[in-house]
Structures are given as C-alpha cells and as structure tokens.
Simulated scan of single mutants.
Amino acid sequence: MADAPPDPKPLSPLDKDQRQGLKAIREFLRKRTSYDVLPLSFRLIVLDTDLLIKKSLNILIQNSIVSAPLWDSHISRFAGILTATDYINVIQYHCQFPDEMSKLDQFRLASLPDIEKAIGATPIETVSVHPSKPLYEALRRMLKTRARRIPLVDLDEETGRETVISVITQYRILKFIAVNNEHNTILLKKTVRDLQLGTYTDLAVARMGTTVLEVINLMVSRNISCVPIVDSENRVLNAFEAVDIIPCIKGGAYDELNGSVGEALCKRPEDNPGIFTCSEDDRLDSIFDTIRKSRVHRLVVVDDENKLKGVISLSDILKYVLLHGEEDDAA
C-alpha cells in the first residue's frame, strides 16, 4: 500500500497574513468596476487618426499628457491609443529612412501601423474594456497584453456606436487599491527580496552624457520603457523614461536626439515627481504606502550606498498582487 503524501507544511503567521491580504484585494477588484477608478472630475482628449503626427505631439505637450485614445472618424470607431512608443517608432523610422524625412512631417496618426510595419516593430495589440466590467478583468487584460494603460470604451447596444469614456493606467489602479485597501495592504509584510519582486540581472543603464538616441536604441533592443542613469560608481542619479522623449522632439526636432540624457531630463515638467527608490529589505506594505502618498511609476532598487540593484515596475507589483499563488487559492 502506497504511503500517504505528507501533510503540507503549515503556513507561518507571515504567510497567512500575506495570503489573506492578497485574497481580500483580489475580492475587492472583482467587486469594483473600472468606472470606480475614475476621479469625480476629469478631462479626456481624444485624437482623430487624420491628425498629423507632428500636431499630435504639440497637443500632448500643451495639455501635459503623455497618451491619448485614437478615434477613426471615417468608421466612428475606437482606433487604439497613442503613447510614447509610437513616437519611438517614428524616431526609428527617421533613423532607418533618412531620405523620407520630408514625408515624415506629412504622416498622420493613421500612418502609425505602416510605420510599425516599415521598421519591423511588433504591433501593439489594440485592447479596451467596458467600464462596467470588473476591475479584475481589466487588469488581467492589461497584464496579458503588457499594456500600461487601457481605454474604457462603452458600446451602445442599439446603434452599435462606441464611446471612449476614459483611460485608466496601472498607476491609477494601484493608487485605487492603495487608498481603498490600507487594511489589506498592511498585511503584505514580505520584503522585496522575499518576493523576488522586480528585475535584477542584465540591467540596461546609461550615463548623464549618453545621447537620447542611444538610450532610445537601448529601450527598443531590450523592450523596456525606463533606463536608470548611473555614475561611474553605479550610483543612481536619475532614470530616463519613454515619456521623456516627447518634449525632446517637440516641433519635429529630431536632430536634438543627439543631445545628452542630462539635457533631456531638464525638459521635464516642473511637477515631475522624479524617481522613487527602495531597498530589497523594504516590505510590500511600505511600497503601497509610497504609492498611496506619491505619484509612483516604478521603483529603482538600491543598496545602502545608493548603488543600482534592480528595477520594480508597476507591472511587477500588479502581477504579484493578481496572480501570485492563484493556483493554490483555486485548489
């Protein structure tokens, strides 16, 4: 007769709290909708795909935004979302086809898929979610497609007409969790090291004197949206993000991409929150506390001497909160 399998090892109090906190947050996300994340008052700027790419850039800068939903007025349909990645693709097109520069100024937002194809970029899946669907569903869709933001699109069942309601970002969702679940996030006392949260190997880095174009090439080759800026001792000075590219090419000034990262960072808006750091010994509840109080888009992990150790993205945090141990919970 075969021996019975050994009893599973009992959970420690720390593990029990962690599991309880995650379970409660997931339950909260299943009960709340994407509508709930929206502020009481907000503005939405939607760009028509007939708009010139050059003009779209100026609109983003003038309105202090870094993305916008796209609308195809010819068929009255949602057509995707304009982000910094699209401008990176335009820059790559400029570099690969310098003789086409005169045409570039005449390209419209509708041309973005053609630009992707010309440079061999992987098309970004166009996803949206109905605002009344559970927030949990929107998050799962974001993680599956690696989207950092997702438009909320309503559909009139009688006419079949779509309406773009708003856009929710990973940051806004995490903020929503942090603000409304302090009694649950306080249970998440495991450290960054315990959770192996973030990326710690083969990190892309740059110096203040590195050109913007070199950093863009680094982002494209590594498929990342942020590059830590370090000194000769690997101490963290700042971080260059994909959205920092937008003011660099204002008015189609592609030649300025040969300028340094240090110069580009000076073009950030005054309300830019800068970078947030943490250590591997920081607990997840303290990270949620930081998100609750500040506009965090990622955390740079440093040691006691401020030397770079790793990077934690909002995707890393959301993936852990949503998916960690899910198989165990289902058992």
Rank of each mutant, 00 (worst) to 15 (best):
A331C: 09
S41L: 14
L203C: 10
I59Y: 05
L155P: 00
L29T: 10
E100N: 06
E214V: 06
P273D: 02
R140L: 15
I75E: 13
T185Q: 09
S128E: 13
I119W: 06
L38N: 05
V205N: 02
L197C: 05
G198F: 00
T145A: 13
S76M: 05
S294W: 11
V227K: 03
D105Q: 12
T169Q: 04
I216D: 00
T83R: 03
F78M: 13
V129K: 13
P269I: 04
L213S: 08
D329T: 10
V243C: 07
M142Y: 13
D99N: 06
H324G: 03
E27Q: 10
A118P: 03
T211D: 05
V230G: 02
S41K: 12
D244H: 08
D271G: 00
H297M: 07
W71K: 01
D48H: 08
V192Q: 13
L109Q: 06
L112A: 09
Q62P: 00
G198L: 10
H94F: 13
V167Q: 05
T159M: 07
G310P: 00
C95W: 07
A4H: 04
V236I: 12
L257H: 10
V167C: 11
R161N: 08
H130L: 14
A253R: 15
G120E: 09
I245D: 08
G251V: 06
R140C: 11
S128K: 15
F288K: 07
L218S: 07
Q196K: 09
F276K: 03
D316E: 10
